[in-house]
Computed example of a mutant assay.
Amino acid sequence: MVAKRVKKYLPASDKVSQHKMLRWLGPTLTKPSLWQINRRSIALGLAIGVFWGLLIPLAQIPFAALAAVLLRANLAIAVTSTLVTNPFTFAPVYFLAYQFGDWLLGDQGAEVTEAMLAEQMSQISVTSTGWIDRIGDVAAPLFTGLALFATVGSLLCYLLVSLLWRLAIVLRYRKRQRRFANSLDD
């Protein structure tokens, strides 16, 4: 039942492998293990996508796809779940990651507020030399926070999906048992 609900939202492997931008991957995309809909594959795919989606700001999808292929997780779920950071969530997630990393490292970074961050970003041009120094001020706390968010977030996603999937199976089993017991009573 859970698998049927998930399957209706996923693309077919043959459609993906025939896409003009993905044809070069050939038989890799048609491996059945990348399209399985079971508890392990879906939970692992979600965990991989959330991990890479939170860890790096660019090229999340290729890293998630590669990890899904190597770990035989559901490819579509891994790629889609990288969108946990998108244009709407990017700034708050990275700001919170910086704040948390700064707190973990003992307030070693520069004091940064959202307004200051926005002002600095508007003043930075690619040709100016000061932008590297400004990135260096926030790099350690930011990457510490992102690494922790990515690790904990992916573990929680894996555990939550596994738990909810198992709960759905148990509830379905109990419902079937009650129906069977009721049919014997009649």
Score class of each variant (00 low, 15 high):
184 L>Y: 04
63 F>S: 13
82 T>D: 06
145 G>R: 00
173 Y>A: 12
29 L>I: 04
98 Y>L: 03
143 F>L: 14
14 D>C: 07
106 G>Y: 02
179 R>T: 04
155 L>Y: 03
137 D>G: 08
59 A>I: 15
167 L>K: 05
138 V>D: 02
152 V>A: 10
152 V>K: 05
181 A>F: 13
99 Q>E: 14
133 D>W: 04
50 V>M: 05
159 L>E: 01
157 C>R: 01
160 L>C: 03
9 Y>S: 10
96 L>M: 10
154 S>E: 05
131 W>P: 10
137 D>L: 14
2 V>S: 06
109 G>V: 02
168 A>F: 01
21 M>C: 07
122 S>G: 06
62 P>Q: 04
54 L>C: 14
102 D>M: 03
113 T>A: 10
157 C>T: 06
50 V>S: 01
6 V>L: 04
74 N>M: 04
155 L>C: 09
180 F>W: 09
173 Y>F: 05
171 L>F: 03
46 L>E: 11
139 A>T: 14
83 L>E: 09
48 I>C: 13
97 A>T: 02
12 A>P: 05
138 V>I: 15
150 A>C: 12
151 T>H: 05
41 S>Y: 08
68 A>F: 03
153 G>E: 01
51 F>L: 06
14 D>N: 13
174 R>H: 07
82 T>Q: 01
126 V>P: 03
170 V>P: 00
25 L>E: 07
18 Q>S: 15
21 M>Q: 14
133 D>H: 08
70 L>K: 15
32 P>G: 05
116 M>V: 14
80 T>K: 01
40 R>A: 11
111 E>C: 02
128 S>I: 06
125 S>A: 01
180 F>Y: 11
25 L>Y: 13
114 E>W: 13
75 L>A: 09
118 A>S: 08
66 L>F: 14
174 R>I: 02
178 R>H: 07
113 T>N: 08
183 S>H: 09
45 G>R: 01
172 R>T: 00
32 P>Y: 03
166 R>Q: 04
13 S>C: 07
28 T>G: 07
82 T>C: 14
159 L>W: 04
47 A>H: 11
126 V>C: 01
3 A>F: 01
67 A>T: 15
22 L>W: 14
112 V>N: 08
35 W>F: 08
142 L>V: 11
161 V>P: 06
182 N>L: 14
167 L>S: 00
177 Q>V: 06
120 Q>F: 13
110 A>M: 13
112 V>M: 15
35 W>C: 11
20 K>R: 14
176 R>H: 04
87 P>C: 11
71 L>A: 15
22 L>I: 02
56 I>G: 11
9 Y>T: 11
90 F>K: 00
177 Q>T: 00
176 R>I: 01
44 L>V: 04
169 I>A: 08
86 N>F: 00
53 G>A: 04
76 A>T: 11
81 S>H: 11
83 L>S: 14
109 G>L: 03
35 W>T: 06
98 Y>H: 05
68 A>I: 06
120 Q>I: 02
107 D>S: 09
118 A>F: 06
142 L>I: 05
102 D>Q: 01
172 R>M: 00
105 L>Y: 09
91 A>P: 10
11 P>S: 10
157 C>Y: 07
158 Y>V: 00
93 V>T: 15
184 L>H: 11
95 F>Q: 12
79 V>G: 00
65 A>L: 12
20 K>L: 13
